[in-house]
Amino acid sequence: MTISNEVSNDAPILDVRNVVMHYRTEKGDVSAIENVSFSLKSGESFGLVGESGCGKTSMAMALLQLQAENATFKGGEIVLNGEDMLKMNPAEVRSHRWSDISMVFQGAMNAWNPVHRVGAQIKEAMDLHIRPQLSHTESRERIASLFEMVGLDPEMMDRYPHEFSGGMRQRAIIAMALSCDPQIIIADEPTTALDVIVQDQILTELKKIQHDLGMSIIYISHDIAVIAEVTDRMGVMYAGKMVETGPTIEVFHNPKHPYAFLLLSSTPSITGPRRKLAPLEGEPPNLLDPPPGCRFHPRCPFVTDQCRTEEPPLAEIGGGHRVACWNWESVPPLSEGLRK
């Protein structure tokens, strides 16, 4: 995997700046996304990793403006090709969906409508966004070639979703995500529901397609190994906040936020050096009433008094690697593990 895109100085096609999103509930506001920023350049792949409930899926939905009805944006911008999506009206947002940003959903099982044929569901998106250029036969030919690209028999497009296996459905979802030539694909847990061999096939497929078509992909997963395998840059989210971001190799091998550090040291590595696994204790905080200061401090082994009161900024520590921690310098190298 190359990280050459990292140094190219193109303007980003997607720039998420200081987004704050809350869910309004009866018990109060849940701060689901708090001041998250990242950007994506053309052809680049970016990974978002974190525990369930950390806000990564909320972030993905926000990029398509598909957030739940009780969600409100308290600030920030989501700039797509120079336009802020948060300021668009619904019709403008719809015109960008799928044609600019498409999505590979988690749990492909339910992402298909059971009563329509798979091909028809793909064609529906194409009719909406690229219809004027394509006749009926041309669109079918395009779907056929997309099916071939993702490794499906083109004849399957006239079948219903329940006739597909789990892996086939996921491939078909990828075909649908590609159908309108988007600049960005969001892959939300693209392989979670699949067994390991199929998982690997799908990831390889996605990587190959990205290489051939040159689009950008945002991977979202709780599985840091998946992210490490397929992305150029990554961000680690914790309790609605971005706590560490940087080139994937850098973050993966040299995590400096205690949370990323613990997450990685609790993941066994086959290829990396042997290390003692350190458990990540405690539970993620209640986002109705997040802890003051650093949101990770109740679980952090490196906690100091400053962490309890002051919120650490996401600060550059060199080479595009940014960490939101007061004590990142006391986090040891991954190979040494955590001494208790």
């Binding site: 019709a91 719809r94 969906r97 498409s102 999505m103 959903f105 339910n110 992402a111 529906e124 998106a125």
Partner: peptide, 22 residues
């Protein structure tokens, strides 16, 4: 509540189309 309704919205279908077709 089904996921495919979200899929339909993500595809950029208008609310009326999501409602009637899906």
């Amino acid at each position: 509540k089904e996921d495919f309704v979200t899929t339909a919205r993500a595809k950029g279908l208008s609310e009326a189309m999501v409602r009637d077709r899906h």
